[in-house]
Each structure stands twice: as structure tokens, then as C-alpha cells.
Computed example of a mutant assay.
Amino acid sequence: MFAIVRTGGKQYRVAAGDKIVVEKIDGEAGASVTLGDVLLAGEGSELRSVEGFTVAAEIIAQAKADKVIVFKKRRRHNYRRKNGHRQQHTILKIVSLGGEQSKSSAGNAPAAQA
């Protein structure tokens, strides 16, 4: 079974046991998170309804991406600026697909992802 989930403004195709790298999600290593923004779910060529469908994941680590160097220069104006940036991300392990989400906690799920 697979699902397409949206978190951090990006979409990921996940299955049980997969490891994915997503934008930073608050939480310590070993904590459980629920991804409630499921766009598509199915098995093989059959698709399922995603109403109340959730994806359970476990945080493996909080990490940083490789450094990106930003260099700006304007010719003949003695203008040079060098800056670096390391994006923070979270490594998730997908535990299970298809957990039912109650109506009362449906409003709280996007806050847990941010």
C-alpha cells in the first residue's frame, strides 16, 4: 500500500517502512507524528478514499542539509557579499498507513506538522 502525503509544501510518495527527509517538524528523535494531509492512497492500481486517512511516522533524527553558498557580485562596483545557509530537515520513518483520524483531531493535525 502507498500514499501521497503533503508536508512542508512538498509531496512525498510513502509506503510502510520508508524513510523520507522532509522540512523541519518539531519533535525529538523517537517521537511519533501523524501526517494528516493525505492526497492519494491505494494499492497497486486501486485507489482508496482518503477521508480520515492518516499516515503514522516516527522521527529518526533532526538534521541539517549541506551548506549552500550564496555569493553576490556587481562588476566594477567593489560589491561582493558571501553568505551561507544550511536548511534544517527531519528524517522520518513511516510506521503505518491508513490509521483513522477522528473529526475532533482533524483540525489539530496540520499544527503538528508545522
Results as ranks from 00 to 15, higher is better:
residue 110 P to T: 08
residue 104 S to T: 10
residue 77 H to K: 15
residue 13 R to I: 08
residue 114 A to I: 07
residue 8 G to K: 13
residue 1 M to G: 05
residue 69 I to K: 14
residue 77 H to E: 13
residue 41 A to S: 14
residue 38 V to C: 12
residue 83 N to R: 15
residue 30 G to D: 10
residue 45 S to W: 09
residue 92 L to K: 05
residue 114 A to Q: 11
residue 14 V to Q: 04
residue 6 R to A: 14
residue 26 D to V: 02
residue 103 K to R: 01
residue 36 G to T: 07
residue 106 A to T: 10
residue 67 K to E: 14
residue 7 T to E: 03
residue 34 T to K: 13
residue 107 G to I: 10
residue 69 I to G: 01
residue 98 G to R: 00
residue 86 R to K: 01
residue 66 D to E: 13
residue 79 Y to I: 10
residue 46 E to V: 02
residue 82 K to R: 15
residue 24 K to Q: 08
residue 3 A to P: 03
residue 91 I to E: 02
residue 80 R to S: 08
residue 61 A to S: 15
residue 79 Y to L: 10
residue 103 K to F: 01
residue 6 R to T: 07
residue 6 R to K: 14
residue 110 P to M: 01
residue 96 S to Q: 05
residue 12 Y to W: 15
residue 61 A to N: 13
residue 59 I to S: 00
residue 82 K to W: 06
residue 68 V to H: 07
residue 99 G to Y: 10
residue 62 Q to T: 01
residue 29 A to W: 03
residue 68 V to Q: 13
residue 20 I to Y: 11
residue 114 A to H: 12
residue 22 V to P: 01
residue 12 Y to A: 09
residue 70 V to W: 05
residue 60 I to V: 15
residue 55 V to Y: 06
residue 25 I to R: 02
residue 51 E to S: 13
residue 1 M to P: 03
residue 97 L to K: 07
residue 36 G to P: 03
residue 97 L to T: 08
residue 106 A to V: 06
residue 80 R to E: 10
residue 57 A to Q: 04
residue 110 P to H: 01
residue 45 S to D: 14
residue 49 S to I: 05
residue 76 R to S: 03
residue 27 G to K: 09
residue 113 Q to D: 12
residue 7 T to R: 00
residue 61 A to G: 05
residue 114 A to C: 05
residue 103 K to Y: 00
residue 50 V to R: 07
residue 68 V to P: 00
residue 57 A to I: 01
residue 14 V to W: 03
residue 5 V to D: 02
residue 101 Q to C: 04
residue 64 K to E: 07
residue 45 S to Y: 03
residue 55 V to W: 02
residue 23 E to V: 02
residue 113 Q to N: 14
residue 111 A to L: 11
residue 40 L to M: 13
residue 74 R to P: 00
residue 71 F to P: 04
residue 64 K to V: 05
residue 86 R to V: 00
residue 47 L to S: 08
residue 50 V to L: 09
residue 92 L to I: 06
residue 112 A to F: 13
residue 94 I to K: 12
residue 33 V to P: 00
residue 47 L to P: 01
residue 65 A to G: 12
residue 41 A to E: 11
residue 111 A to G: 08
residue 84 G to D: 07
residue 35 L to Q: 12
residue 84 G to L: 09
residue 73 K to E: 13
residue 35 L to M: 13
residue 11 Q to D: 06
residue 105 S to G: 03
residue 84 G to P: 11
residue 78 N to M: 07
residue 77 H to A: 12
residue 17 G to R: 13
residue 37 D to R: 11
residue 89 H to N: 03
residue 32 S to H: 11
residue 69 I to P: 02
residue 71 F to G: 04
residue 14 V to N: 01
residue 32 S to L: 12
residue 114 A to V: 06
residue 113 Q to E: 14
residue 12 Y to V: 09
residue 103 K to V: 00
residue 62 Q to N: 14
residue 27 G to D: 06
residue 67 K to F: 05
residue 90 T to Q: 04
residue 31 A to Y: 05
residue 83 N to A: 09
residue 61 A to Y: 06
residue 56 A to P: 04
residue 53 F to V: 06
residue 91 I to N: 04
residue 75 R to K: 15
residue 34 T to G: 05
residue 114 A to G: 08
residue 60 I to P: 00
residue 97 L to Y: 07
residue 104 S to C: 03
